[in-house]
Lab assay of single mutants.
Amino acid sequence: MPSETPQAEVGPTGCPHRSGPHSAKGSLEKGSPEDKEAKEPLWIRPDAPSRCTWQLGRPASESPHHHTAPAKSPKILPDILKKIGDTPMVRINKIGKKFGLKCELLAKCEFFNAGGSVKDRISLRMIEDAERDGTLKPGDTIIEPTSGNTGIGLALAAAVRGYRCIIVMPEKMSSEKVDVLRALGAEIVRTPTNARFDSPESHVGVAWRLKNEIPNSHILDQYRNASNPLAHYDTTADEILQQCDGKLDMLVASVGTGGTITGIARKLKEKCPGCRIIGVDPEGSILAEPEELNQTEQTTYEVEGIGYDFIPTVLDRTVVDKWFKSNDEEAFTFARMLIAQEGLLCGGSAGSTVAVAVKAAQELQEGQRCVVILPDSVRNYMTKFLSDRWMLQKGFLKEEDLTEKKPWWWHLRVQELGLSAPLTVLPTITCGHTIEILREKGFDQAPVVDEAGVILGMVTLGNMLSSLLAGKVQPSDQVGKVIYKQFKQIRLTDTLGRLSHILEMDHFALVV
């Protein structure tokens, strides 16, 4: 994948999101292997301009796509893939009243899908469409860049269908997702969380590099694949309309690839034109409109599966009536509230959605109805927002919020430890010299600072030695090549209790 991002070429006709291997024109390309080798690009942008032909009021008969309808489940399912879809609609009884809503608040519980998330729908649909058009064949390999849930859905379907599955996901995604993927037989590649989507090191860039190296491999490409919004247009939206008897006044959905909100909203605009569509985008993402909503100094966020630093091709923002931004604290607070007060075992993005819903639905009156999409299960986040310690460490809970008995030293300040200034190293000294210094002084790690004293990161003896043994660096290389740029900081005025929580999850903390 090139470091400079080429513009994806656009073909003359058809839909841009065809499933299957992508040609340089962004659509299915038939021909000899030699032709494909000559024409197939190194990668295709996940934010390529959409060429979708959908228009409100256009006859369904003019759609270029294969459409399906929700099917009634048999008493005995032939395999677990038949437990994807037909998820329950559940009334939220307490939270709406707590925040003064007059309307009825309903939750579409997508964590009841077989793999635990709304992404099971698009995973199965992308595979079925690729099999139907002859792209996927027995023994082929599926590769997908994902925040985890699409990966789980694909790995689940691949396990049943017999495909090899490789999932490329950023490091910030939970260990629970990784464990589930491994249990399903998927191979996992992790990428830096802070890598831009168009960087060769991003999950998108690495996935395309693997595709170019592995024979008979395919990126189904949830960011561009029409099967993504079509899955929701054909099934999720129809289920909502049936469950609500066609009567709903507002739908609120958090947005990642945009397939969920695009597919549902398009069908609702056709069948229930008075329904307002509300999009939820986390602070630090750029999906919301108008652009002024996205202006923030924050560039990272903890909530998973929603928000991006690019506009995915499948996201149709014209069908969203209003956007709201959400933050991590309210997302996790509301997710825990949904679990504790409503018994809905949902993930953090569901918290984002409901946090926005109780604001947006203030305009609705008694007798009206708001539906929220709860995308995934708490299963993926047992060591994250479900953990009091994690919430404390991230600053989303305060010590006084917890009532468990603490040891005698818990409320003492870090400054009472009488710490001395640490050994520091410059980023320009060599790895070999740094190892000598650390061994001589008896230290395992040291902060790396520039000549102005600005902290650049941390270097550890173990990481340097393993990097040297693996051949990633040489003793003569500058130590700046092996620094940890993500590390926890703590102030002298913070409590030892807070430091204790940090050290339970990290090997060190830097006192500043």
Rank of each mutant, 00 (worst) to 15 (best):
P2R: 15
E4C: 15
E4T: 05
T5H: 06
P6C: 07
A8S: 02
P12R: 15
P12K: 09
C15A: 10
C15V: 07
R18W: 14
S19K: 12
P21S: 15
S23G: 07
K25V: 06
G26C: 09
E29N: 12
E29G: 13
E29Q: 15
K30M: 09
K30G: 10
G31A: 12
S32E: 15
S32N: 04
S32C: 02
D35T: 14
D35M: 09
E37A: 06
A38F: 11
A38D: 11
P41I: 10
W43H: 09
W43S: 06
I44D: 10
P46Q: 02
D47E: 11
A48N: 10
A48H: 09
P49Q: 10
W54K: 06
R58F: 11
R58S: 05
P59S: 15
A60T: 10
S61A: 12
S61P: 12
E62R: 04
S63R: 08
S63V: 07
T68S: 13
A69T: 12
P70A: 14
P70Q: 10
P70M: 11
A71H: 13
A71G: 13
S73R: 12
S73Q: 12
I76E: 07
D79N: 13
D79C: 14
L81W: 03
K83W: 08
G85C: 06
G85E: 06
P88M: 04
V90Q: 05
V90R: 03
R91K: 14
I92F: 14
K98M: 13
F99Q: 06
L101I: 04
K102C: 08
K102P: 04
L105W: 00
L105I: 14
A107D: 07
K108G: 04
C109Q: 06
E110Q: 05
E110D: 06
F112G: 09
N113T: 06
A114C: 04
S117A: 06
V118M: 11
D120W: 05
I122T: 05
L124Q: 11
M126F: 04
A130S: 11
E131W: 00
R132L: 07
T135D: 03
L136N: 00
P138H: 08
P138Y: 15
G139P: 06
T141I: 10
T141C: 12
I142E: 00
E144Y: 02
P145W: 03
S147T: 03
S147E: 03
G148M: 00
G148L: 01
N149L: 01
N149R: 03
T150H: 04
T150L: 05
T150P: 03
T150C: 01
I152C: 02
I152E: 01
A158I: 03
A159C: 01
V160W: 07
G162I: 05
G162C: 03
R164C: 11
C165H: 00
V168K: 03
V168G: 04
M169E: 02
M169F: 03
M169Y: 03
M169S: 01
M169Q: 04
P170A: 02
K172E: 06
M173Q: 05
S174D: 01
S175H: 11
S175R: 06
D179T: 07
V180P: 03
R182G: 11
R182F: 07
A183M: 07
A186T: 11
E187M: 03
E187C: 11
E187H: 08
I188T: 06
V189I: 09
R190T: 07
T191E: 01
T191H: 00
R196C: 08
F197E: 07
D198A: 06
E201N: 05
S202L: 02
S202D: 07
V206K: 04
W208G: 03
R209G: 09
K211C: 05
K211P: 09
E213Q: 15
E213K: 12
P215I: 05
S217I: 01
L220W: 00
Q222S: 02
R224E: 11
A226G: 07
H232A: 03
E239Y: 06
I240H: 00
C244Q: 05
C244Y: 01
G246T: 11
G246L: 04
G246R: 14
G246S: 08
K247L: 10
L248W: 01
V252S: 07
V252W: 07
A253L: 12
S254N: 13
G256R: 00
T257S: 07
G258R: 00
G259S: 01
T260W: 04
T260A: 08
T262N: 09
G263E: 00
K269N: 07
K271Q: 12
P273S: 11
P273F: 03
G274F: 12
C275S: 13
C275Q: 04
R276F: 10
R276V: 13
